[in-house]
């Protein structure tokens, strides 16, 4: 039965990717990674310039997953309680309290979309830490559970005005940080400008069939993937070597241009990060119709699951994106399997 489930769900995943690729063009790799994160039950942080389609992409996935969907915009005056409740004067002239975005859908909340997360204050990030890690929230003397919730967030790395850097503890809660870049293909770029279907985002997203996936079955199926897709001792050793290399890259002969490798890394990937990496790698193996994880499955998710977890010396933080990319590429090139 489980083999049939794996096959059926694989078809769902392929349909999901196919539908979203019709709406968001030239982003096959991010779409594959987000699909992987959904089946790994991991939160996703999109990073990219303004107007590159981050929000459209997340809205499209949200429509496909089904379930409760809530969205909030990150602003400098956003406070944690704004995520939990809001107050207003009712028609009866009395103050009323209604559930905020986190509580509104109850346990059926499947996607919580945090737009421009780096504009929110650290207090908001702090609240989000618990919600992302434990999928619970205490409010009104009551514990709320969000077992199906995934947090999709995006941030603009270029604009630094009135923004707050997401602390490493919060970054570590995200399974993946996925860069979104404008596609370089001339045909795609031309269609983005001239094809009128891309002008109206709401209409565009509505063209996607809703509820391709059953949000309330994803947790169980994700557990099934993690059980069925195996990893041999050779692969485990390879993953361990990769982990060690993120901590002491110079010991593996990894070099990054213009960087003192002995001073670069303050903290390598966390155990949670490496665990998430392997969960994502298993899902990647499943999507590619394999029963076991290959090094190539790890490579497919290595950058997106590890790069944002590395803690660099402050002097290198300004070049974080570029250095993390070169460092992880160097690690993959340096560590052999078998």
């Amino acid at each position: 039965m489980s083999d049939k489930q794996l096959t059926d769900w694989r078809q769902h995943a392929q349909k999901l990717e196919s539908e979203i690729n019709k709406v968001v063009v030239g982003q096959q790799t991010p779409i594959r990674l987000i699909t992987t994160a959904i089946f790994s039950r991991g939160h996703v942080l999109l990073e990219g310039d303004v107007g590159v389609g981050k929000t459209t992409l997340l809205r499209a996935f949200t429509r496909c997953i089904g379930g409760g969907y809530q969205r909030i915009e990150g602003t400098i005056d956003l406070m944690p309680n704004d995520l939990v409740y809001h107050t207003y004067l009712g028609e009866d002239g009395k103050p009323h309290v209604s559930p905020g975005p986190l509580l509104m859908s109850g346990e059926n909340l499947s996607v919580f979309f945090f737009n421009e997360i780096n504009r929110a204050r650290p207090q908001v990030h702090s609240l989000l830490l618990r919600v992302m890690a434990e999928r619970t929230l205490s409010a009104f003397n009551k514990e709320y559970h969000f077992p199906h919730m995934l947090v999709f967030a995006d941030r603009n790395q270029v604009e630094k005005e009135e923004t707050f850097e997401i602390p490493s503890a919060a970054r570590d809660r995200f399974m993946m940080e996925i860069p979104i870049v404008v596609p370089d293909d001339n045909e795609i770029m031309e269609s983005l400008i001239f094809d009128t279907k891309f002008h109206n985002v709401d209409a565009l997203v509505n063209t996607i069939p809703a509820d391709i996936l059953q949000f309330d079955q994803l947790n169980d199926f994700s557990a099934l993937i993690q059980t069925k897709i195996e990893a041999t001792s050779t692969l485990r050793q390879y993953a361990l070597n990769l982990w060690r290399a993120t901590k002491t890259p110079s010991a593996y002969g990894v070099k990054v241009s213009g960087v003192d490798m002995n001073r670069l890394v303050l903290a390598g990937a966390s155990p949670r990060g490496m665990s998430m990496m392997l969960r994502a790698a298993r899902v990647n193996a499943w999507i590619n119709n394999r029963d076991s994880v290959l090094p190539e499955d790890i490579h497919a998710v290595f950058h997106s699951t590890v790069a944002h977890r590395l803690v660099f010396s402050p002097v290198y933080e300004m070049r974080r994106t570029e250095i993390a990319r070169d460092l992880l590429t160097g690690i993959v090139n340096a560590v052999a399997a078998p």
Binding site: E230, T232, T234, L235, D291, S292, V293, L294, P295, A337, P338
Partner: peptide, 12 residues
Amino acid sequence: LSHQVFFDTQIS
């Protein structure tokens, strides 16, 4: 062949 021998638990 390498994948089968090193990473495939079914037919290694």
